[in-house]
C-alpha cells in the first residue's frame, strides 16, 4: 500500500503542564488523494489537530506521520490555511505572492497563484490590510495552491464568505485539487458546507476521532431503523434510539446482519449519521479499514 497522507497513532496535545487535553488518543489514517472533511463541534480539537499536522504545534505524545515524514520534515509538501487567514497586512497582494515564490523555490506555480487572485477581480497592487474577509481568503488560498502542496490543510476556510463566494471558491479549490491529485483536509462545524464535496470523513469530538473513513462506506455501515417499539438484537451496536409513543427510530451499526425485527430500514443521511454520533458520546468509535493506522511503530501504538 502507498504511503498515507496522514497517519496518527495515540496523538495527544495538552497546553501547559496541567491544562486540558485538546487532542487525546487520536488515531486515524488518511489515504492520499482524498478530499476529507474534518467535522466536529466547536472545541473538539480540530484546530489543534490541524496545527499538529502543519508542523506548528508539537504533539505532547503519540506518533504522527505526514506523507510518511514528521510534520516538520514535510513542510515543503504541505500548505495550511489557518482559520484567521494570517497574511502580512503591510504587503500588497503582489508582494505576498512574491514571498510565496521566494520561500518555495523549485515548486511554486506563479501562474496558478496569479490566476486565483485574478478570478477574484483583485488588483495585485492592493495592500492586504485593505482587503475584505473574502478577498483575504482568496489571497491566502492562492498562496496555498501556488505552493503545489501534496497535502492541503484548511481550517474553517469558508466561514467568512458569503454563500456565492463560498460556492465559487470551493468549486475552484476542488477543481484545482482534483487536477493535481492533492489530498485535502477541510475542517468545519457546518455540515452542509461539506456535504457532497468530500469523499472522506473524520468526525472529531473531545480530541478523539469517532468516525473515520470513506463517506459512503461510513453511511452504508449504518442503518436508520423505524418501526414499533421492540428490543434490538444484542449483537447490534445502537448509536442512538428515540421512542415516540409506540413508534421508535434507531441509528444502528450494520455489524450483525440480518437486523431482524419488523423494521423499516433506510440508509441515514450524512447529517443524521453525524448528529446521532454527536448526541451519543457513549457510541463506540468506528474506523473503516482504510482509516485504520497501519505503519505503527512497534510499541508506539498502545500508549495510553
Amino acid at each position: 500500500m502507498s504511503i498515507a497522507a496522514i497517519e496518527a497513532v495515540g496523538l495527544g496535545k495538552r497546553y501547559g503542564r496541567l491544562g486540558k487535553w485538546a487532542v487525546q488518543d487520536c488515531s486515524f489514517r488518511l489515504p492520499q488523494g482524498q478530499i476529507c472533511a474534518l467535522v466536529g463541534p466547536n472545541g473538539a480539537g480540530k484546530s489543534t489537530l490541524l496545527g499538529q499536522l502543519a508542523g506548528l504545534v508539537r504533539p505532547s505524545r503519540g506518533e504522527l506521520r505526514v506523507m510518511g515524514k514528521t510534520p516538520g520534515a514535510a513542510r515543503q509538501q504541505l500548505a495550511f490555511l489557518a482559520q484567521e487567514k494570517p497574511l502580512y497586512p503591510q504587503f500588497t497582494i503582489e508582494e505576498t505572492l512574491r514571498m510565496g515564490q521566494e520561500l518555495n523555490p523549485g515548486h511554486w506555480d506563479a501562474e496558478r497563484a496569479a490566476r486565483i487572485v485574478k478570478e477574484g477581480d483583485l488588483d495585485p497592487g492592493t495592500k492586504v490590510r485593505e482587503l475584505s474577509g473574502g478577498q483575504r481568503t482568496r489571497v491566502a488560498l492562492a498562496l496555498c495552491l501556488g505552493k503545489q502542496p501534496d497535502l492541503l490543510l484548511l481550517d474553517e476556510p469558508m466561514a467568512d464568505l458569503d454563500p456565492l463566494a463560498r460556492h465559487q471558491l470551493m468549486g475552484n479549490l476542488l477543481a484545482e485539487a482534483g487536477e493535481s491529485g492533492t489530498t485535502v483536509v477541510i475542517s468545519s462545524h457546518i455540515l452542509a458546507e461539506l456535504e457532497g464535496a468530500c469523499d472522506y470523513l473524520l468526525l472529531m469530538e473531545n480530541g478523539r476521532i469517532r468516525l473515520g473513513g470513506e463517506t459512503d462506506e461510513l453511511l452504508s455501515a449504518h442503518a436508520l431503523l423505524s418501526g414499533p417499539v421492540t428490543e434490538i438484537g444484542a449483537g447490534t451496536t445502537v448509536v442512538e434510539s428515540k421512542v415516540t409513543g409506540r413508534h421508535m427510530t434507531a441509528l444502528v451499526r450494520r455489524d450483525s446482519e440480518p437486523l431482524g425485527g419488523d423494521w423499516e430500514v433506510v440508509e441515514p443521511t450524512l447529517e443524521e449519521l453525524l448528529l446521532a454520533h454527536m448526541r451519543s458520546p457513549q457510541a463506540p468509535a468506528l474506523l473503516t479499514p482504510s482509516a485504520e493506522p497501519q505503519a505503527v511503530r512497534a510499541g508506539a501504538g498502545v500508549a495510553a
Partner: peptide, 10 residues
C-alpha cells in the same frame, strides 16, 4: 498569528 503563514510557506 502570521508566524503560521511563514512556517507553512516552506
Amino acid at each position: 498569528g502570521t508566524y503560521r503563514l511563514a512556517w507553512t510557506q516552506g
